[in-house]
Design a protein around this nucleic acid. Sequence first.
DNA 1: TGCCAACCTG
DNA 2: CAGGTTGGCA
Length: 603
Amino acid sequence: MDPNSSLHSPPSQACLHLAQPCIEDGRSPSPREQGRDSPFLWRQVPSSSIADPDWFWDEHIQAKRARVETIVRGMSVSPNPLVLPGNTPARDSLCCPEKSRERKRKQSLPVQQGPLKPGPAGDRGSRKGGPWVREQLHLLKQQLRHLQEHILQAAGPRATAQGPGGSETGRGPLGVKQRNGWGSRPWGVDSDQHQGSNRGLSAAEKHRVCEGKTQSEEARFLSSGAGALLEILKKELTGAISQAVDSVLQKVLLNPPGLLTQPGRSFQGLVPDGKSGPCPPEGGACKDPLPLAALPTRAQPRAGLPLGTLSLAKPLDPPNYPVSPRMIPKPYQGPPANCPLAVPPHSQEGQVLTQLLGHGPRGHWHGSLSQDSSPQSQPSSEVALRPWGAAKMRPLALRQQQCPWPFTSTCLERLPLIPSVKTEQDGLQAVTNALPFSSSHIQEGLNPGHLKKAKLMFFFTRYPSSNLLKAYFPDVQFNRCITSQMIKWFSNFREFFYIQMEKFARQAISDGVTNPKMLVVLRDSELFRTLNMHYNKGNDFEAPDCFLEIASLTLQEFFRAVSAGKDSDPSWKKPIYKVISKLDSDIPEIFKSSSYPQELFRN
DNA sequence: TGCCAACCTG
DNA sequence: CAGGTTGGCA
């Protein structure tokens, strides 16, 4: 899978990259010249226009040019020195492998289009308006590109990526032709058709620009239709810029939803190294009342685990254990108590990003117990190659918009996404108001969205109180019936959960597992898949780590009980239930959004 | 006795 | 997943 492919999917996104291209593209310089000759080009442009009636405008242009030059210079030393093997200029292949290709194509264009195939739109203008107009146009387009670049850079690291060189200068003139409210469209279109039709023009235009018409010619041509054309161009470009800005912002702020769900196993193995223990139960730090040293936390390295257990077996002593360089502590790893998170959102974002980039451990005990002795590890390459998924970044991006999306990380929920709820009324109302998609309609019945939400909530809480349910389903008009129905849901969830636990525990026993600590539920274990399939069918939510902890713990408890023969007692499960019931985690605030189910449905 | 959760069944 | 039943608990 090409991790960059996602960048190309939506047309408008592609346009951003297409728009990038390049100063250098316009003239097909040798790689070394890139970024240097453009200023040269600009320098030539308005020099003689001083005598022009548009002198003022010209000055304006010069000022702009100066700014652009500054920008370009900055770019040439920009912190993006990705040097890729092969001495390819980093910018070309930076994030879009296609860009190089694109550039090659363009370089050959002037040759192919030698005869200056008159562009459908630009022909007249370019001849009549003269080089000066073209230069102005060129400048404006340069500015547009730089503006876009800046926006991209400002908006996010990924955005600095340079797209395939697509927006050739020729697209401007095309824009003139396509001015039916689609000023920016040329930048938004990535189809070969458009490229094909425009390329000739742009190439020709560039070519001529390179030849450098004399300034006197420019002045001559300027007088008549040029002014009008300029006006049109200015308008077009203005529109294009604003539209480009819009689309950039949209793209950056709103990652394509399609990325969220990664079917199959892509979600597996993402258990971060700096794994946290179970999310602190409501009381605060997770009590460990059990004899369960089995609690698969980082409390201590697991001895006797198969090699596959590495990651979880890491010395993970909270809160300050060292983590591997790759692994930045998760935001919630610090103070166990409800993760107050004094960390500013920004840094959290970085941390989470880093965390998301990290890979999970290999499975110790793969659900299929029959293999517990021979860790059927999938090739670690699979882990390494696993798309770390823009999907997982979406919540981050969306957070900026206060969009109610599922997040990926266990306790990300503790980020101050949403004003915390004080009273059920006011607080929830505040939440509702704060959310763009919130539907304030109070429903009487429960819909499938509520069910889905409840299932996801089960990842955090197995034994929700009715008050909790009321708090997290603000759009539900609770009555006795509804409440009991929802309680019943969770009862059913638990039932399924415990059945699976018992089943796998017994299987482990029959497979000869003797040490309950061997039983750790990981994301790629069969047990987890079963559970995730049940509670998170679409896999549009990443089960929190704390759920894995709970699952592991439960499994181990069942294992112990069964292997100790306690299952002869008719109520042998009760102690287990009791233990598990104390380990509910806080539910992410975002679940309080009444629109949450709807958001899930949109995927 | 009422409530709750597990359990059983369809 | 829901309806019904059962058993424990206050």
